[in-house]
């Protein structure tokens, strides 16, 4: 079985092909990566895919109703639904500055929630 990945570790974005034995599920070959980081990336993708999350949080008294947010690092893909529940439970008050840490150590996973835009206070 052939799985194709585009590595996202560095801007080169190598197209990596992973050949997996259908029966044993073992990796028989990895080709296309320019460095070992690419190999690490596809191994991680196969075993326990990591993802960053971007969403929005409700803002009160702001010029905008939402502030766009991102996680400071990646988490296991399986954690995303719980992270979303946490994000949905939050509400913040303006002003908010880009880069502000809005929530620390989400779900004990050692990642923070960061504001990715400015929201001024409503005049």
């Amino acid at each position: 079985m052939l799985k194709e990945y585009t590595c996202i570790i560095c801007p080169q974005g190598c197209d990596i092909e992973v050949i997996i034995d259908k029966k044993t599920k073992n990796i028989t070959n990895i080709i296309g990566n320019n460095c070992s980081k690419g190999e690490d990336y596809v191994m991680q993708e196969l075993v326990n895919p990591q993802r960053t999350l971007q969403s929005s949080v409700l803002v009160l008294s702001g010029e905008l109703p939402l502030v766009s947010v991102k996680t400071s690092g990646s988490v296991a893909r399986d954690n995303l639904p719980q992270l979303m529940d946490l994000i949905n439970s939050l509400s913040l008050t303006a002003p908010i500055t880009i880069g502000d840490i809005l929530y620390e150590n989400m779900l004990g996973l050692n990642i923070n929630l960061i504001a990715t835009k400015n929201v001024n206070k409503c005049k």
Binding site: T52, Q54, S68, K70, I98, T116, K117, N118
Partner: peptide
Amino acid sequence: LKQCIHDGFGLTRFKESYTGPEYAE
């Protein structure tokens, strides 16, 4: 970019994966 709140912006230019609003900022 104000509404493109996902990341993937700036990989070539800044060697970082910014969200749209961050790239614009």
